[in-house]
Computed example of a mutant assay.
Amino acid sequence: MQGLSAQDKERLCQCLADVFSARSVSIDAMSILSGGAIQENWALDLTITGGQRDGHLSTVLRTDSPTGVAVSLSRAQEFSLLQAAWDAGVTVPEPLLCVTDMAVIGKEFCLMRRVGGTALGQRITRDMTVGGDREALTERLGREMARIHSITPQTHQFAFLDAPPDDPAAAELASMCRFLDEMDRPRPVLDWTIRWLQRNRPEPQGTVLAHHDFRTGNYMVDESGLTAILDWEFAGWSDRCEDIGWFHAMCWRFSGRDKPAGGIGSREAFARGYEGVSGIKIDQTRVYYWEVYAHLRWAVIALQQGDRYLVGGERTLDLGLTGRRPAEMELEMLRMTAPHTLGEAA
């Protein structure tokens, strides 16, 4: 979306006025936000006259990029999950509205209150002036994930999500195999890793709502600590350890490779937070399995992102560079699946 035309802005303001029961809404400023490889995010500063939200409102308008990946949720679906997370006490941007009427700006979009801080993984893992005490932040993130996992098939129904799998590990592996079969390219290390995952698959232990992209780079921090958990477009039912493994995986530690919890802290601090809220002890052997899977999944997503550049015609530097990342993941998969390393989490 290359900005909005004058007509688009007029329709958007009228739409927002109707939803907010306001006499009028005007756009003071609008600018594209950095990040967001799957979706587009726009900072939108509004002046609202009348109604319950009378005054100035700083928001983010979130809509689709020109191309996407197959497993990404729609904006309306993502908004529904964001609302459920907000209601469960997860620290997320306040969800304001979702519009599916394509006549407004030509795409579905959702609007949420803008929060302060940075989500840049490289900065969070290096710059000690943001995020506050790192062990405290790590423990806080453990608590946040536990609140997400309090949403289960027994407490919530989401018609747009696939039915909860009886065996999340088997279902996730089958999904990765389908993607690789459709790509029809030889990737021997990925084949090796799939075989390792099949042979070491853990027994199912229940299903929760998994964020599916809970990692450094997808939460925001300011000078004092956490301000929001972001990017819910991949969420779905799975094993709780899938999220835990994704957060701890080497591929998401950025410059903090020696800090296993997201490149910022210790496994122990994260476990304190998670176990304190959930009452469930983390099984580190299961987490190791899902860390191996995290590298497989990120390699497949990187291949899909590369196709958006090579095949889909979305010529952005970020997508082109991401398409070269699978080799890094393959090196880590080989390290983690060597016979003597089973369960030896870094």
Rank of each mutant, 00 (worst) to 15 (best):
Gly117Cys: 07
Thr118Met: 03
Ile151Ala: 14
Met102Leu: 15
Arg187Gly: 00
Thr100Ala: 13
Leu161Trp: 08
Val130Tyr: 02
Met183Val: 03
Glu135Gly: 11
Thr129Val: 05
Ala171Ile: 05
Pro165Ser: 14
Ile148Cys: 13
Thr152Lys: 06
Glu144Ser: 05
Ile148Met: 11
Thr129Trp: 03
Ile148Tyr: 01
Phe109Asp: 14
Arg178Met: 03
Gln157Val: 07
Ile194Ser: 01
Ala146Asn: 02
Ala169Glu: 03
Ala136Val: 14
Arg114Glu: 08
Pro186Gly: 10
Met183Tyr: 06
Val130Leu: 05
Val130Phe: 10
Cys98Val: 15
Gly131Met: 08
Ala163His: 07
Ile124Met: 08
Pro168Tyr: 04
Ala159His: 00
Phe179Ile: 11
Leu190Trp: 00
Ala174Met: 11
Arg147Pro: 05
Phe158Lys: 07
Cys98Trp: 04
Arg113Leu: 01
Arg143Ala: 15
Pro153Leu: 03
Asp181Ile: 02
Ser175Trp: 07
Arg113His: 09
Asp181Leu: 08
Met128Arg: 15
Phe109Pro: 12
Asp167Glu: 06
Ala136Tyr: 06
Cys98Ser: 15
Pro153Ser: 14
Leu173His: 01
Ala159Tyr: 01
Met102Arg: 12
Arg147Ser: 01
Glu135Pro: 07
Gly106Pro: 05
Gln154Val: 02
Met128Gln: 15
Thr118Ile: 11
Trp196Gln: 07
Cys98Ile: 06
Leu141Lys: 04
Ile105Lys: 06
Val99His: 03
Asp162Arg: 14
Ala136Glu: 14
Asp162Lys: 08
Arg187Lys: 09
Arg113Cys: 04
Ala170Ser: 05
Asp166Glu: 13
Ala170His: 02
Thr125Asn: 08
Leu97Glu: 11
Leu173Glu: 00
Lys107Tyr: 14
Ile148Gln: 09
Asp181Thr: 08
His156Pro: 10
Pro168Trp: 00
Ser150Ile: 11
Leu120Tyr: 14
Met112Tyr: 11
Asp167Arg: 05
Met102Asp: 11
